[in-house]
Design a protein around this nucleic acid. Sequence first.
RNA 1: GCCCGGGUGGUGGAAUUGGUAGACACGCAGGACUUAAAAUCCUGUGGCCUUACAGCUGUACGGGUUCGACUCCCGUCCCGGGUACCA
Length: 1171
Amino acid sequence: MEYNFREIEDKWQRYWRENKSYKSEIVSGKKKYYVLDMFPYPSGAGLHVGHPLGYIASDIVSRYKKLRGFNVLHPMGYDAFGLPAEQYAIQTGQHPKITTEQNIARYREQLDRIGFCFDWSREIRTCEPEYYKWTQWVFIKLFNSWFNCATKKAESIDELIAVFSTKGFNCSEPQYLTGDIEKAVAPFSSDEWNAKSEMEKSDILLNFRLAYLSNAMVNWCPALGTVLANDEVKDGVSERGGFPVEKKIMKQWSLRITAYADRLLTDLDELDWPDSVKEAQRNWIGKSEGTSIRFEVIPNEESNDQADQNSIYNAASPDTKELKDHRYSDPKSYSHLKKFSRENKLNPTEAEEVLWEALRRTSLGFKFRRQYPISKYIPDFVCLDPKLVIEVDGGIHMEFSQRENDANKNAELNFYGFEVLRFKNEEILDDIENVLIVISNRLNELKNNSPSPLERGLGGEASTLESRDFSSESTEQNSSDFKNDSSHKVQASPQPSPAERELVGDSNPRISQSLSDFKNDSSHSNPPSPLERGLGGEASTLGNRETLYIEVFTTRPDTVFGVSFVALAPEHDLVNIITSAEYRSAVQEYVEASSKKSERERQTEVKKVSGQFTGAYVAHPFTGAKIPVWIGEYVLVGYGTGAVMAVPGHDQRDYLFAKHFNLPIQEVVSGGDLAQEAYVAKEGVLVNSDFLNGLDVKAAVKKAIGEIEKRGIGKGQVNYRLRDAAFGRQRYWGEPIPIFYEDGIPKTISETDLPLVLPEIDKFQPTESGEPPLARAADWKYKGKFNYETTTMPGWAGSSWYFLRYMDSNNEKEFVSKEAVNYWQQVDFYLGGAEHATGHLLYVRFWTKFLYDLNLIPCKEPAKKLINQGMIQGVSAFVYRINGSNKFVSEGLKNQYETTALHVDISIAPNHILDTEKFKLWREDFKNAEFILEGDQYKCGAEVEKMSKSKYNVVNPDDIIEEYGADTLRLYEMFLGPLEQSKPWSTQGISGVHNFLRRAWRLFQIENGACKLSDETPSAAELKVLHKTIKKVEEDVERFSFNTTISAFMICLNELSDLKCNKRQILEPFTILLSPYAPHFAEELWSLLGHKESITKASFPIWKEEYLVENEFEYPISINGKVKFKINLSLQLSKEEVEKNVMSSEELGKFMQGTPKKIIVVPGRIVNIVV
RNA sequence: GCCCGGGUGGUGGAAUUGGUAGACACGCAGGACUUAAAAUCCUGUGGCCUUACAGCUGUACGGGUUCGACUCCCGUCCCGGGUACCA
């Protein structure tokens, strides 16, 4: 009876389905093994032969582990939310749910035909409410958690709120030590916290939540109408569709994956994952350890004078006015300050209005500006010359803590050289004339006696700085005046958005920090401050200038003496402030030009050196040398501080920049040839570097950091390249974010109201006003009145935890039961494409760690072992149309004509010979095609490309199954080569594995529905063949080397055939060995062998050493490393005996004479004779 | 540019720890069976030189370590993947 694969495969697929053969359940006490494939997105094109490659491998592992007695979990499902279905919906109006279901049905049909042992009772679809209910649930958990930097784990936001209301918040405490929070949230006391409005609290908490809303720079893809995460953008275009992507600031939900950067990095070490994936994640996280260094800007006489005149006394152009507007403001927050300043101007308090009018009508001889940013503050009224600030204090200043803040603010303003006068509302409203007199007197005093900033801020008036410790003169003086009050302007003004408001905290920790550093520095004369060292002699000429700093981040503090310029990103806020008059127009031009460039342009122009001198200089922190400040596009505003100290001698980009603009290149680390290129290596001895001379790089880095910290001009710092993940999509076909807005405050819906089901809408486009499609759902409101968030989650949301849901996929009460997750733990073997290295695989690790922190699951990593299967590429076929005609020329003759290559469907060009008649019928416009043949054939061109519908090179597994059967397909895909390797699909060779099955079938001698096998005891030779194979198959599957396993089967079959083996005791175990690879085939034989139970219930055979022992070995005898002949010798012989036997052999004489120099004997391996 | 892989017959690939390079399969050639074909089975198959035996050569290229190197080290070239002015 012949091998009839169609009949067999139908029969067993039905049997498995009817008997639920692959249903898995928790069996306590039984060891488990969890095999997971990355679940597919069900695309309209269906499966091609590339898809099953990984599924077949994991199916083999599952079946093998079952035979080895493991309780195997091997589920499958669909990553069913996604863009293609939605794009199709936009075009046709067809609901994406319908498209998705059709595609799933098709996928399922194709998968079933390949004979996988998936437990379909656990199927999940991310787009179904029963599933995404729990995705939303995790989101709520993220929203309600923050990352404690002291314990390094996520904790409940409620606990944080409790801390705030009892102890307040101060960013210097270890649990808050992340750069973002330090920058974004000002310290506050518990009383202040309790006094804050709901909105203020909400805004502050958003800075802590792991899922948060903020104004963030996003990748906006206009063509797709949505934002994308960083990993969804490749080369400046969207990964799906290849549409251009631009940077844009948008209010946006994000997940704080950066909080986990360090854990995601360190835990990689313990994962059995491909090095390439681990390395890709390391690079993506991009940890770099270095130090910040502050460079003091040397005031530019000429430019500042001119600027002063321009803006204060003359009709200033808008540009210079703009410049003047923020010459004292904190550069990083200027744009936010400006907005807030504008808003305050539009909404003055009554007292402010009165004072402003009074100042304007009275000619005091001094010019005042309103709501003028200085550092991170916006004082109410500012006179720039002399420097005086007038503050109108509202009721909020009654609070003790606010007085502290006022003290900080005073100190800060003093630092910039401003005197501060404070008035209460009543003072102004009751007696404005008196107020004006006080102001006028003070101004005149200041005008006549203006001390230098050195004297004021640093030297003589140390007490002013001490006032930072909450006891300044002005504070005391004012505090006694505080009584009742009308509302303060901050409260009176309309609520700005969170991002705007978060900067308006009345104190700025960062500057406070640097100030105290500075104070320490200068109040002790040793070591000398940069000012004293570098600029001491010029102190008198400094006049009443403010001091500005450029902060840079560097990983090479050792090279600090090699700095020859400082480079700012074009978007850096200091650019406008420090640029001298002379260079202003050139700088503006440069900045504008670079801002107009798209992300794409900037990326393609990489390595083109461009830059512009600003005319400004900074002082070297150690030598005091004058260092020019440049702007360069190669400096990125989003990384580090947006400024670099350029060391051309030891950084490639700085080197190119310096060469291009003819800037000095100073060697500070010996070992390279700087005339040729930058010496970037982190080894060598420091030279030209003062106190670092003679040290090696490692020691110099250490010493430099120490010195920098000692002088308070910077501190050790760690930067990550990883950014928080954009989580909202302006799209319909995704999980609704379970958030509603009450009075503008985002709140999560109650867990008991989950799932928040995707509402039905009439159209899937964005609304006319540009809102996401969900805004079309008119009556879609929480509790009938609150608006829901209208963005949806990104494609990777559902896949970030699906491995957990499979453990307990039908649970309506929990996302996964404790029992299930404690039993199945984590994935033991995970198989999928390498393209997910920095996307899915990072997100799923992040979510896993988060759920672990919340004690919801027992493992902190999703998968122990990961393998990436290679891609199976397609071989495309091309025809060559002669330009401007309907003539097609064969591949070999195409060079004689001007042609255009067109893809042609590989089904009408078998073996790349075009079927010209089918080609004419293929598409309407080829109906009248003419051909120029080679010989009597039309030969198509061939090229290996990604298998894709649009390239007409897709091979459907159904066709292969139709012709050869599923078992042949399974064996063949495994036989193609190593699993991880990519390779083009070719059916050359498929007959080899198909033949193997047919020959194996014959070995079983089937007649009349039974195997006619002998029950005799097998021979030693037969046993040896069998046990050798068991051993090999076992070893190979354990190391996922499936191609060599197939060849082991073939060798086994060849040898058994040679032995004419028909012994049941040999062929039964052989059948079991084969069953994971060719399950239908093995089931049928198993049943024909008389077994009533499925072969999946069998046990994997155990190989026995005793059958494998060899008595003899044919030693290859080599002379000078070249094998000359072979001798059979007993393996029992010792080294010496082997040597004796070889030396006395007849054959040796043929190859050598005399005595050998040396004889190497490796027992059981080889003998080498050196002559 | 940087990081990670890889380069072996006509083809896919094997060689697991430095120990017989090319397993297994495809293809090709020859043969058997057959009226013939298909199917099946047998033999051969890296290159060069030879009737043959043998010999020489050979794992991208050039060096090195070693009794012995596809395997380890140094340099060069090429291919694939990741990443990109990340300081």
